[in-house]
Simulated assay, not measured.
Amino acid sequence: MAHDRYDDDVIAGVLKSTKTIALVGASPNPDRPSNRVMGFLLQRGYRVFPVNPGQAGKQILGQEVYASLADVPEPVDMVDVFRASEYLDSVVDEALALDQPPKVIWAQLGVRDDQAAVKAEAAGIQVIMDRCPAIEYPRLARLLG
């Protein structure tokens, strides 16, 4: 799939069908985008599992933090990646190693690795890159019902 542009229906479909999210690169710092986006997602009713090895066992926005995707206690629909582009491939590998991989890997604004996307898509995982759900959700509210 080309990742330069996404149809609104594709993004809305992901946001509508997703219920659980592992947020990789979650930060306890309220000034960090990952913290603000996590708060936004929680307010919209998503279950969010923050993933950050340096914060494992602590809490971010009232949610227990996990060291890795493998440590998240239940399967997730989506992995939201707040890591630099050079780490996206390893996040994809980690997701593919799960007993039940996510349906979607969503890479945040500025995060893109086309080879990692090809690998994820070959395994049946939908990939969205260089987008933010906290921007897309309000923009597509009319499609989300």
Rank of each mutant, 00 (worst) to 15 (best):
I60M: 06
D114V: 11
G45Y: 01
R47Y: 01
A12D: 13
E121G: 10
G62S: 06
A97P: 02
Q108Y: 02
G25Q: 06
P33C: 08
I125C: 07
P133E: 08
L88W: 01
I105M: 04
G25S: 08
V92A: 12
V104G: 01
N52L: 11
A70K: 12
Y6G: 13
V65I: 06
R5K: 14
E94A: 13
V111E: 10
G39F: 02
I60L: 05
G45E: 04
R44N: 14
G13R: 01
L42H: 07
G62K: 06
R142N: 15
G110P: 09
Q63P: 03
D99G: 15
F82Y: 13
D77K: 01
L23T: 04
K103I: 01
K16G: 09
D7I: 00
R5H: 09
K19T: 08
P53C: 12
A117E: 03
D80E: 11
D9N: 09
V72Q: 03
Q126T: 10
Y66E: 07
G110C: 10
D31Y: 03
L41C: 11
V111F: 07
L41M: 14
D80S: 06
F49V: 01
E121R: 00
E136F: 03
T18D: 04
G62W: 02
Q115G: 14
A22D: 00
L98W: 00
